[in-house]
């Protein structure tokens, strides 16, 4: 009954050690490198975007461009259509202000917030979202978001 755990662990260890992880399920990182463009959706915020927020978004995009060697191709719209496009793989990244407890958290992957704005008992977070399962691309977005937030002194 307990035969085989050692061999199983060995196979797993060999498989894992020889691999470059994580990779994307749908290959977003490679597609960006091949196409030379990052398809970014910027969620319009009814004119309430502050100067500071715009600078943070710009810094994040610049960092991602530098890391991937690709240029940003920006689409502006309201957040829902952009998130649907992201989910369908029509966009690589969506940046905007989202409720800290947005129900989209199950359908897309949000990176750490670049800035947080309290709204009564709730709060709005300026943050980037990637497509679920694109683990290499999401790891990059998260790393760069943390770096931008750190530079800006976001707690």
């Amino acid at each position: 009954m307990f035969a085989g755990p050692r061999s199983l662990c060995l196979i797993l260890a060999l498989a894992i050690s020889g691999c470059d992880m994580p990779r994307d399920v749908e290959g977003t990182t490679e597609a960006i490198a091949t196409a030379g463009t990052i398809r970014i959706g910027l969620a319009e915020n009814s004119g309430k975007t502050t100067q500071d927020d715009a600078q943070l978004v710009s810094r994040l995009i610049t960092r991602l461009e530098r890391k991937t060697g690709a240029h940003a191709q920006i689409t502006r719209a309201t957040s829902e259509p952009l998130l649907l496009d992201l989910e369908a793989g029509e966009l690589d990244l969506v940046i905007g202000s989202f409720a800290a407890k947005t129900p989209w958290v199950k359908r897309v992957s949000f990176a750490p917030a670049l800035a947080t704005h309290p709204r009564g008992e709730a709060s709005l977070e300026l943050k980037a979202a990637g497509r679920n399962g694109e683990n290499r691309w999401i790891s990059l977005i998260e790393r760069e978001s943390r770096a931008v937030a750190k530079e800006a002194g976001t707690p």
């Binding site: 749908e26 992957s109 990637g130 694109e134």
Partner: peptide, 9 residues
């Protein structure tokens, strides 16, 4: 479902 595993600092 495509599961996301992100990063941690």
């Amino acid at each position: 479902e495509h599961v996301t595993i992100g990063t941690i600092e």
